[in-house]
Design a protein around this nucleic acid. Structure first.
Lengths: 119, 119
DNA sequence: AAAAATTACTTTGACAGATGGAGTAATATA
DNA sequence: TATATTACTCCATCTGTCAAAGTAATTTTT
């Protein structure tokens, strides 16, 4: 079970972040090889618990990314709990990530365009 | 059928904008009462065809918004084509929209946090 | 040492939202 | 009159998220 702490502000709905998850996970694996549980913790702590990825979702993302050749996995030889499955990013994954970063910029522009001027 | 023109740059994937659609539609109805076909054109033109909402999606959004009491509909008495169904935003809709604008700010912060430093 | 908590991963089934495709219908234009 | 455009609706399908339940190893508590 993942721990749950009270977030600093409001939680982010999953529909809002949907479509960015692959890129976010990939971004963290890009920094260094990581395993699932670690990533879920990292996301929670970096966002001060404003966003928490669900376990089932996370592992579904791994499956998708690996199937598409964006990450590769291997088992770690030590741990402190269940056995860890580590992921590393592939060349293809890096290319995808670069694309995704561009796409995010573009998306911000477009949604800002359609949502601006409400304050 | 909605017209399709070549976008200025890359098209936005639907998963990326999913979760913002309700707010975007609502935002346009907030400006003035509008009908479906008009909204789809407006989105295309404002984004220079970088985002085009699909008809089926648009009308699904209307149904959802109306069911939730965020918009109300009435038939226009003149048109230049099929009969138009106009939508107006409700008080509840306005409140929702304000929330959504806040949420969008928050979302940008969070995704930026998780995606930053790739250039 | 036994029990409980924590770490860590997996699978299944359900559900919601987006969309292709097909269809209906009125008006405008060639 | 035929075709294009304007305008809306419904249905089947696909994808991504997630609750729930389960497996298993290690660490901490009693």
């Amino acid at each position: 079970m993942l721990t749950e702490r009270r977030p600093r502000t409001k939680l982010i709905r999953s529909d809002i972040i949907r479509g960015h998850l692959d890129a976010i996970i990939l971004r963290l694996i890009y920094e260094e090889d990581r395993y699932g549980y670690e990533i879920s913790k990292e996301i929670s702590s970096r966002t001060e618990n404003r966003f928490q990825i669900k376990e089932a979702t996370l592992y579904a993302v791994f499956q998708r990314l690996e199937k598409n050749g964006l990450i590769e996995s291997y088992f770690g030889n030590f741990s402190q709990g269940g056995k860890r499955k580590y992921y590393r990013i592939t060349l293809l994954g890096k290319a995808f990530l670069k694309e995704a970063a561009e796409e995010w910029k573009e998306t911000k522009e477009i949604i800002d365009l359609l949502m601006e001027g409400l304050d």
